[in-house]
Design a protein around this nucleic acid. Structure first.
Lengths: 198, 198
DNA sequence: GTCTATAATACGATAGAC
DNA sequence: GTCTATCGTATTATAGAC
């Protein structure tokens, strides 16, 4: 199973380049010409790998979105509401850390939503599902705002260029802390230290 | 002092329309044709009020950015670090609530940064200044991440369409709560209720 | 202040050579 | 698998009539 390597490689390079350009210029602000130039090929060469620009956008976003949807589905299966939140929170943070800028991209870039709404993927429902789990049924405004802020804060902080120097475990812990503070969840295995803390 | 009213009115309508389109399609995803169509005028009419698209982007963003810069400057003048954080936090939340989608726009849209970096405004330094105040000097990773998450979370939650139905005081309180939780600040005038709360 | 008309350029996308 | 060349359209922006 080691055929078409050259093909896969160029395709992978293309997606990596596209992601980088998308995060700095936005999807709509990135032209196929820019991608081709960065790759050192022509526009027509890009069109060999992908039929349309939307197809590129989908392919860039796909892996992260798939993992996110899987995490939401897993979390939904938890019986206790608190466990649902914890499962979703850790799963979300893991995806953000694994893909860094990607989640920030489709948390805020309208071009991603536009490209995705025409096909199978449903970013909207994944986001709605996460909010429902985090805020619970019939949430008060404070909890609803906290849920939104947690998702946006984790996604954008995780993808922030200023924080790119942090290694994965450090970033992961810090992002988990953000989520736990906003959602009122205890840290695992250290429920609540009484008085000598800080 | 009540001249040129018609002019000001169209200009204001134009900016409001531009902001709305920017938030739903992104700056680069919004064409002057879209703005003109939405206004019921032609592209040339838009060009009467603004010489370039960048000028529109600047004008849309200007009021919010000015208020933000003023808030940062005020906060910097506070002597105690905690007071600096509280001042910046409340000021930032007020700007977000007053302008709702605007702050979310220039927190995440690359088109805004691109349009601004060519002229007087310095979004970058305003953001850096806020992070410095919130995270303090030589911050550990956790505090740095918390500061980033607080700003991004407040901005994007404040501009979220899902939360547009919340009235200003409710949204304001909820966003302040987000910031305080992430930055470890106490709620004013109700330091810590002992046991009967919740 | 808004219009028609148009210029110059960039866009996404296709055809066909190599 | 990548190229040159091109099509049709949309873009920002300008000139000039009304």
């Amino acid at each position: 199973m080691a055929a078409v390597v050259g093909h896969e490689d160029t395709r992978t390079r293309l997606l990596a380049t596209a992601l980088r350009l998308f995060t700095t210029h936005g999807v709509e602000g990135t032209s196929l010409q820019m991608i081709a130039d960065e790759l050192g090929v022509t526009k027509a060469a890009v069109y060999y790998h992908f039929k349309t620009k939307d197809e590129i956008t989908e392919a860039v976003v796909e892996p992260g979105l798939r993992e996110l949807e899987a995490t939401v589905e897993e979390a939904t299966r938890e019986r206790r509401p608190g466990a649902r939140i914890d499962h979703l929170l850790t799963g979300f943070v893991d995806v953000v850390v694994r893909h860094r800028a990607l989640v920030a991209l489709f948390s805020s870039d309208p071009g991603v939503a536009r490209a995705l709404e025409k096909h199978f993927f449903h970013k909207e429902s994944a986001m709605a599902g996460m909010i429902t789990i985090l805020a619970g049924p019939d949430p008060d405004p404070a909890r609803l705002v906290a849920a939104h802020a947690a998702l946006a804060g984790i996604a954008l902080a995780g993808g922030a260029p200023d924080l790119a120097h942090l290694d994965d475990p450090t970033l992961r812990d810090a992002l988990l802390d953000v989520g736990r503070k906003l959602l009122g969840r205890p840290r695992p295995r250290a429920p609540r230290a009484p008085a000598h803390v800080r």
